[in-house]
Write a protein that binds this DNA or RNA. Structure first.
Lengths: 125, 125, 125, 125
DNA sequence: GTGGTCTAGACCACT
DNA sequence: GTGGTCTAGACCACA
């Protein structure tokens, strides 16, 4: 549990995204407690303050709530919220850029998708 | 011309990419002069030093050359070079991440591609 | 009975103030027993220790007394005591701040009072 | 410039409110630069990080914007935004509590207002 | 010059 | 036990 942090992103943001991914995947379920700031800091070999900053962001995104003296908990409905918000962002901001980029590089989307593993996200069929 | 700069990238890099895109698209042709540092800085509402830094990066990428007393010019062969390098990077680094992201969001690549528009951007057809 | 606790005040203090208000309003009469720590903790969805701390504060304010084996009771004269102390604090500390705030927001006190409702809450009239 | 900080509020929040008040009063005008993090930290005798935290909150409230490498600036329209938001909060949250408190203390609002200095916020007339 | 990030360590209030 | 706040000091990227 010492995820070599990337250089181009602050650690607290990477940790935040890690937690968000865990919620999305379901490995962190709604209502469940996040690992304590101190614990996660120990595991990840970072300063508690840095870990705390990651958690704060999750609170302000309303994915996580603080229960005083008890810890941080995944909010009910967090997963749906994440899914919805990220999809929106992807469709409106990221996807158009991706398409533009593919066109600029004069590549063919269909070829890319075929090469990826076929339709409906299955790896093999 | 005040392209709201993104927060997660330094301005000079965004400007550099903007110029590279222009070369790729063909709106900046090989042999052609780049707008002067001063002009671009004015238009983009940025510090001339920032614009200069972007141009320097293009020089060190060997996409642009400085002709003393005349300005900066797109190198012959810049477009092909860009196309080759960027395609590689896209296929090896960006595309896999995009696919992973789409799967995490439980979306269907085929649907995305279909929704993107009937004009299939194939190089040849 | 899950009164969304405010973030800027510890729960035990909010509970203490809640009880004090009840005494002031008369819904908790002098000589009457407070609900047991355990009960109030259940109702309010808080830790019994937190409820206990609130009650302890009321004891040290001499608004409530503990009768061993029986529970906590509102002291005779508690209401008058509260009324006197709180009025003083309100006039000296709170009211000036309120007036300053209204002025800072460029609002008119008279309008506020008028809008508050026709039922003028005078003691005598 | 060593404002004895209150005990019951974190310093960074008090500093944030101080700046917000300055915007409201007009002593910090829209478009103007805030004093740098380092400067304000020196003046206020606090840690730069604490000052930074205060500024961050102002950014997330969209009262202040960061211009990279230049500093923090009051957003155009910040004052109106503050005025509107704070008025709303006051009317919906604070005022009802104040009225309830006055009634609980069996005092008369009109008397309070009269004692304060008359109508329309004038101190003397 | 600007703000941002991170660390190590202390202290506190709340539950 | 939990998270929050603050400090002192270092280093970095950006303009």
């Amino acid at each position: 549990m010492n995820p070599d942090w990337k250089e181009d992103q602050p650690i607290y943001r990477q940790l935040r995204d890690k937690v968000a991914s865990a919620i999305l995947e379901g490995s962190l379920k709604e209502g469940e407690a996040l690992p304590s700031v101190r614990n996660v800091a120990m595991e990840m070999q970072i300063n508690p303050l840095t870990a705390s900053k990651a958690y704060q962001e999750l609170v302000s995104q309303e994915l996580v709530e603080k229960r005083r003296g008890l810890g941080m908990f995944v909010i009910e409905g967090a997963r749906a919220k994440l899914l919805q918000g990220e999809r929106k962002r992807f469709l409106e901001e990221e996807w158009p850029e991706i398409v533009a980029r593919i066109q600029a590089l004069e590549m063919d989307i269909d070829d890319l998708v075929k090469g990826t593993g076929g339709s409906k996200n299955r790896k093999k069929s």
